[in-house]
């Protein structure tokens, strides 16, 4: 089975209000899409202040199947710069990612699917040498809802094309 298959249902745009690692309120926007000719999954993540003036944290990650069959990825973070990421085994409907940065930190990112249109996002990081994270470790978290286009009566468009003639 293509290891990306469990996450193909997440393709789309997600948004929500949450809490940054500092405890400040944050607005999160995440987009999952297919790239590289449909062979890789891109995750673009932005956490901003509620006024949309400051990007607290931006992450772009690409997940793809490694030659040995495992799902791995590359990531760029506006805080941690570039690093490689691994998918850690977890329950169905969970994407748990971890990676070690060149700056000596370990990053943890988790998306939990609550239903078809709701994800719960959490992320934290700590120095590689620090003790494993506990429940009191500061983390960013946000419930994310799938963004749907607003339904409205469309304004009249151009006239329909005449039917093709033989």
């Amino acid at each position: 089975m293509n290891p990306l298959a469990p996450f193909l249902g997440w393709i789309g745009v997600w948004g929500g209000e949450g809490e940054a690692q500092t405890g400040d309120p944050t607005i999160v926007r995440t987009e999952f899409s297919l790239v590289q000719g449909g062979t890789a999954l891109s995750m673009h993540f932005e956490a901003c202040d509620p006024g949309y003036r400051i990007l607290y944290h931006g992450v772009r990650a690409i997940l793809s199947q490694a030659p040995n069959g495992d799902l791995r990825g590359i990531a760029y973070s506006t805080i941690h710069r570039g690093y490689l990421i691994e998918l850690t085994p977890d329950d169905e409907g969970v994407m748990a990612l971890t990676g070690a940065t060149r700056g000596g930190n370990r990053i943890f990112v988790t998306f939990v699917q609550e239903d078809a249109d709701n994800l719960l996002f959490t992320a934290s990081w700590r120095p590689n040498t620090a003790a494993p994270a506990g429940d009191d470790t500061p983390r960013m978290s946000a419930p994310l809802r799938r963004l749907f286009p607003m339904k409205f009566e469309r304004p009249p468009g151009p006239p329909a094309m005449p039917p093709a003639t033989q």
Partner: peptide, 22 residues
């Protein structure tokens, strides 16, 4: 595919994936 960024010393660092090299 890869991401290029600058190290503190100004060199480019690239995290990358290649279909045949991983």
């Amino acid at each position: 595919i890869g991401f290029w960024s600058l190290e503190r010393d100004g060199r480019v660092c690239c995290v990358m994936y290649g279909g045949s090299v991983g």
